[in-house]
Design a protein around this nucleic acid. Structure first.
Lengths: 353, 353
DNA sequence: GAGAATTACATAAACGATTGTGTAAGTCTT
DNA sequence: AAGACTTACACAATCGTTTATGTAATTCTC
């Protein structure tokens, strides 16, 4: 049967040129092509020139998949975050992407949605994509860490950032959350506050546990009592912050300040305080954590601890790069700790009333 | 809690089991393994069972790279955004990742940093990673679109979202920005405003051009004059918003409202208005665009147009999936238009003064 | 019960790059 | 001038899948 002329085919997809094409064109072997392109010493400068010129001319695009398959390692970097919203994770991802891209890596993003099972799935996905490494901030619900063990067994660099495991046997990049809590609380004390409450997050996450400990230690160092009645545990949403504030203000002996481990909850608290006709910081001083964008547009502006989001992303990538460089010593585990920065704003400045 | 300080052996990385391993174990060919795992009809149910059971038992993880190499198409989806900050792009990416992941695709994120050259690089990177498709929101500086042409030539689905090309010959998912501008402006008119200014973005981007046109058309339909003096073009940062507001308020005949194509600039404007001792919305009503998180925590809260960020991400993935399904008709280009939603808040409500 | 269709599997060639090994020539050493 | 290097390249195996093409055995059709 005669084949009908395929007339107005909008354009058959052009297949990209391969190394074989270049080799044929120049009458040399594929070895030569491969080595010329990767600047191998065993290829003469003249040949290299020729090959590279032809590659430009034919617009040769290396197939990274093929290379990755052969070499067993791709130029892909897996990242798992609980979600991509708010200020923190988008900024960290921003930092990761920038640094990774500079080092020639592409990043694959996965969301765990704060779910441990989903996180396990993500690990599988990334492993079967043959990523060169995995950067992860663990989901809130993760309490079993065996899926991470598997990554290590495969010899693939694993770096935790921000939310990590309680172990020295991991690579991690974290903020000195303790210090953030300490500084913030000490600042409130310095402003004359004596009864400082704390909005605490879920205590199985290292970050919230450390912030709380910093708070407690600052109180202790100042000779102030530690009153569990003044610590409110929650997910620290705006609503929960407002609710917590209501509860605290109703105490017979209400606090004169709040240090919150999150910004949303302190925002809720601020609104509640204003709703009750009280003044910030005169009646109650406020300090938060995360330095969210909105902290500088509330009235009064909110004091908060900056988490160095972008630096954290970059540091995480740097650590990853170190790990693949030192293939031999890859089993030494390193912890990088970033220093927080306290941004003092109106909500805690008694002098600026 | 017991500290597991066990000295870790530098265990040699275990190599993952391959189909060959399964085949050897069962004494069948790799063909059988491959087909059993992909549920091919030519494999008997008993054999399928056996293979799948062994795969589970040995914890077989398919090497997607190899499959992708062979099939010429991977399960990777490339995404190029100008940056990952603020509300819009993180949310869209969030939507994209969720939808893609549901369809079995992993997403590779690239940032163009608003730079056309960088964007070209991103395209190369994604192509050589053999992605199955590319979703892109073009950089502000892009005015040459040839690099996108190359993607089409390769037969790889390309979908623009939000910021697109001026052409029907593309697949795109956009917001009805015109309508957002129109609704917003009409709302201000309905509130009694008669001299409405506009903060306009760079006019070579479709989104800002359309918002401006919506604004103009609403004025026209209401029989109001269009006064170029009241349109301020800028990058719409907070500072530029404040500056623009200053300029407008200094006019002999200042406006009684501002419709801004962005939220940051309207926030700057709000602060400037308050600084000058004027009241919002009584002296000047304000409306923005993007429905940023901060719009509901300013005082007064800011009216703004919601861009359906997450829906946009999901719709973009859906369109991509349609394209790869209908491999034949992949050349028909589709435009999906999402409808904006105006969130009316205090900054524009004269009745609620 | 002969031919067609279906079932159930195997063989082997891809996909596109990397790389250990082999082999000529040319250069250097002594 | 003989052995030791170095230079410059080719051969062919390899990474882990997919898949076109067999090839028997079984079942179905009329």
């Amino acid at each position: 049967m005669a084949q009908r002329a395929k007339q107005e085919q909008p354009q058959p997809p052009t297949t990209p040129v391969s190394m074989a094409d270049l080799a044929r064109e120049l009458g040399v072997s594929m070895t030569t092509i491969s080595r010329a392109l990767s600047d191998h010493h065993s290829i003469g400068p003249a040949t290299k020139q020729k090959v590279q010129k032809l590659a430009k001319k034919l617009n040769y695009q290396p197939n990274h998949l093929a290379a990755a398959l052969r070499k067993g390692k791709s130029k892909l970097l897996g990242v798992i975050v609980p979600y991509i919203e708010g200020r923190f994770f988008p900024s960290v991802v921003h930092g990761i992407e920038s640094a990774a891209s500079k080092a020639g890596f592409s990043v694959i993003i996965c969301q765990s949605n704060e779910d441990a099972a989903h996180e396990r799935k993500n690990i599988e996905t990334l492993l079967s994509a043959q990523v060169a490494g995995i950067l992860v901030s663990v989901a809130r619900t993760t309490n079993d860490f065996r899926h991470f063990e598997k990554v290590r067994k495969r010899g693939i660099p694993l770096v935790f950032f921000d939310r990590t495991m309680d172990s020295d046997a991991v690579n991690s990049v974290v903020l000195n959350d303790w210090k953030g809590g300490y500084q913030s609380t000490k600042h409130l004390i310095d402003q004359g506050c004596r009864r400082i409450a704390h909005f605490a997050g879920l205590q199985h996450l290292n970050i919230y546990r450390n912030r709380r400990q910093g708070y407690l230690d600052a109180l202790h160092d100042a000779g102030l009592p530690q009153d569990e009645e003044l610590i409110v545990y929650s997910d620290m949403t705006m609503e929960e912050g407002a609710e917590a504030m209501r509860r605290l203000l109703a105490l017979p002996n209400p606090p004169d300040a709040v240090f919150s481990a999150g910004d949303s909850s302190v925002l809720g608290a601020l609104q509640e305080v204003k709703r009750q006709g009280l003044r910030v910081p005169q009646d109650i001083a406020l300090a938060g954590f995360s330095n969210e964008a909105f902290t500088s547009i509330t009235e009064p502006m909110l004091t908060s601890v900056d988490q160095r989001c972008e630096e954290m992303g970059q540091a995480t990538v740097r650590l990853f790069l170190e790990l693949i460089d030192s293939a031999g010593g890859a089993y030494t585990q390193r912890q990088v700790v970033l220093q927080p920065e306290l941004f003092v704003r109106e909500s805690s400045l008694h002098g600026a009333k």
